[in-house]
Simulated assay, not measured.
Amino acid sequence: MGAPAAADGGTPPGRVEFPTRCLPAAAGPTTARIEVDDPSPGVGDTVTVTYRLDRTPPGPGPQGAFPAPTGRVLLGGAQTGEVPVSAAPGADPGGAAVTGAEAASPGSAGAGGSGVVMKGSFVVTAPGELTLTPGGYALPGGVCAVAGPSAPVARRLTVAPLPVMNLRGVALGTSYGEPGARVRVTGAGFTPGAAVTVAGRAGAAGTADRAVATADRSGAFGVELVVADRGTTGVVAYEGTAWSPERGARPQAYAVVEPTAPAGGGLTMTQAGAAITLGPVGYGGAGGGAGRIGTVTVVDARGAGAARWTLRGKLTDFTGPDGARIPGASLSWIPSCGGGGCVPGPPGAVGPEGAVLASGEGGSSTVDAAVTLRVPAYTPPGAYRAALTLTLS
């Protein structure tokens, strides 16, 4: 038996009738209503529940002062448990102070209704349908329990599920290459065990360059893509038959170029892939997304007597959906390098003020860094991006 509809003779929503037995000596039907302040809450929301007694079994009235009425509302469906409810001590539903026989007791209001209003609240913990059923109650002059398995369900709430975040991302081993070059593509955040298609893009259209990989148990993959189409402007990866914002990673820029002879006698820098893909962080808890910068090669051909070179980096703030931001200083790195008298910079935050990645002199040096982004708790979900600028001087 569910709650009667409002259209049936004007019955208020959430009103049900059920048999009750009361102590010291009373039995009969109880008519009650369950009301909520939010019929469509989300997980984590607090819902206020109102338990109204419109009619109770006949019984003796209270003698002298008495405690405030109390009761409970049973939760079922997606979330189980009970919600304690109570009336304000010494107050009727209108707020006037009452004591002794003036207050409602089992049967004191008869068919006209007892007018007792009790309230409580609970926090929603699971998505799906949630039912609210009236339970037993205690009034001045008697304690009443539901006679039978349970009372009818008085309210049904629909709890929306948490939003599903697309954490898929890819990184390229290099952002450019000659026609036919093999590009190392790595990805993370995909469905474990899913087939992943890696493909070239020319603007908004796909190219014929494709490779297929399988995501491992952590949702990561690695594959080489042969980029032959000279019109390629980017590389994507996706699950399913075609790329979509829900099941694909954001395109990463790639350019097909003709080889050029390197200039000599100066100070030059090249990087194996400019994009950095950080690991996902679960919603609700603070955590760190880890990654690495693309390896930087510094060639110092200036000759003897040249000043030491310094490689610095600075980072903008991360921007996400609806203007959400994570400060750039939340990203820290641990530099490492080798060759050419290279000395790594100190570990620490990068941010807009910048930090030294490495310094050295003469010959060829390779510079790398492990990076970690500390994400504040309850940061709005979604993909966040920032620009890391490396400057060699």
Rank of each mutant, 00 (worst) to 15 (best):
K119I: 06
T316L: 03
G177D: 09
A369Q: 08
P280W: 03
A188E: 13
L157I: 02
A202Y: 07
A87L: 03
P245L: 12
G354F: 06
L167A: 15
T56Y: 06
Q252P: 14
A194W: 00
P381M: 03
T389S: 09
G112C: 11
G287Q: 02
S218R: 03
G264I: 13
T186A: 08
N166H: 04
G305S: 14
L390S: 09
R312Y: 09
G14N: 05
S365M: 05
D300C: 13
V298Q: 09
Q271D: 07
L311W: 02
G59M: 12
T372A: 13
A5R: 14
D38G: 10
T30I: 05
P280E: 04
R156G: 06
D300G: 12
A255R: 14
A5K: 14
A358K: 03
P58G: 09
R201D: 14
P57W: 10
V85W: 06
V123P: 02
P347N: 02
G320V: 00
A145W: 13
G44S: 00
G90M: 14
E17T: 14
L278T: 06
L388P: 02
F122V: 01
L392W: 08
T56N: 01
T214V: 10
G345L: 02
G287A: 05
G360H: 11
T233M: 06
G345K: 02
A147S: 07
A199H: 08
S175D: 15
G44Y: 01
G219W: 00
Q252R: 15
A101E: 14
G284K: 09
